[in-house]
Amino acid sequence: MKNQDRGFRIGAHIVLMLLSLLAILPFLLLIIGSFTDNAWAIANGYSFFPKEWSLKAYQYIGQQWSTIGRAYLVTIFVTVFGTALGLLITSMLGYALSRPELPGRGIILVFVVITMLFNGGIVASYFIWTQVFHIKNTIWALIFPNLLANAFNIILLKNYFENDIPRALLESAFLDGASELKTFTSIVLPLSLPILATVGLMSALAYWNDWTNGLYYLSERGGSQYYSVQNILNSMNNNIQFLANNATELAKAGMSGADLPSTTVRMAIAVVGIIPILAAYPFFQKYFVKGITIGAVKG
């Protein structure tokens, strides 16, 4: 029996190792690409063993370091605040919906699911957020539109609360006279760390990677102090692409695109965007620990 378990475990290690390699090797190519000499990369493609190395791509990004530094602060604030607030309201709704006896539950669920399918489009969203709620050029522009809560997360939480929290626990709490809120905070939430970590991670990733809100709701004049890292990186990316496509026009004005590390800078931008979230990931992982002590609570 033990042997069989060990065999299974070794097999698991091998498979996961292979999967990790599949994921890491391209990432390595990306990192090496960002350190490759631009002209060499254009002529020879990206390689694990480039013949010419260069730091130019990072120097180019570094030119805007003062803005990027502040943008990191903005991003961190938005990510932390947005994730926390989102997680709070999402899990409260998920908890309410996890109770099969709640009158009107079906209707609320349909109300929630519809939002996964239908949307009014950007024109209408923009109108509502700017003309009704006036969030343009405020920090809320990065937090509220689209990202705070979504149907998928609500349903994930609802499912977990419904299926993985023993009913008996809730009932005994109510018998002891605990209120809904008290039960929710002191029994349900502590038992739901894996799903909270999951939803929190998804939400944090969404906040971290988002650049559309900044694009739409922050303007150069008046809102640029709230640009997030992805706003800046993304705008850099787009403008480099634009420059590259229109270099002839610019060159006519005496501006040469020749020394712009166009190809490699895209790689560097991706690296700069990915590394911090990768560094923050272990924070979430500790909640995926096996065998959350439901048994212990029961006992």
């Binding site: 709704l93 239908f118 209408a124 509502i128």
Partner: peptide, 29 residues
């Protein structure tokens, strides 16, 4: 009996209403 649950559900429902339902007039486009 259920009021506390409804109150807990409310903030997120309001958000969904503002973020997803108000702009749905855009569908008529």
């Amino acid at each position: 009996r259920y009021l506390p649950l409804y109150l807990m559900a409310l903030p997120c429902l309001i958000y969904i209403f503002c973020n997803n339902y108000l702009p749905m007039f855009g569908i008529i486009i």
